[in-house]
Simulated scan of single mutants.
Amino acid sequence: MSAESSRPLVWHKSSYSGNEGGECVEVALTVESVHVRDSKDVDRPFLSVHTDGWAAFVAFAAAG
């Protein structure tokens, strides 16, 4: 187990998520990965993506 995996994740709500409910996403960043979860259902499993994969996804999404 790495030192990183023993640290608790610090979740941040997406700036695109509103306060009225609806679709809300939170992310937690580590050195090697990005974790994504539904902020309305935080007890469910979350998605973990390597930082390279996340960067590729963000570039693809930004390109439209």
Rank of each mutant, 00 (worst) to 15 (best):
M1T: 15
A3L: 15
E4W: 06
S5I: 07
S6M: 08
R7G: 01
R7I: 00
P8H: 14
P8A: 11
L9D: 03
L9Q: 02
V10Y: 11
W11Q: 12
W11V: 12
K13A: 09
S14F: 06
S14K: 04
S14W: 05
S17L: 04
S17R: 09
G18A: 10
N19G: 15
N19K: 06
E20A: 13
E20T: 13
G21F: 11
G21A: 15
G22E: 08
G22S: 11
E23G: 08
C24P: 01
V25Q: 02
T30L: 08
T30A: 09
V31H: 08
E32H: 15
V34C: 15
V34A: 10
S39E: 09
K40M: 07
K40L: 11
D41M: 07
V42Q: 12
R44F: 05
F46A: 03
L47S: 05
V49E: 01
V49Q: 00
H50W: 04
H50F: 05
D52W: 11
D52P: 04
D52C: 08
G53T: 03
W54K: 01
W54E: 02
A55R: 14
F57G: 07
V58F: 06
A59Y: 00
A59V: 01
A59E: 03
A59K: 09
A59M: 03
F60N: 09
A61L: 07
G64R: 03
G64K: 03
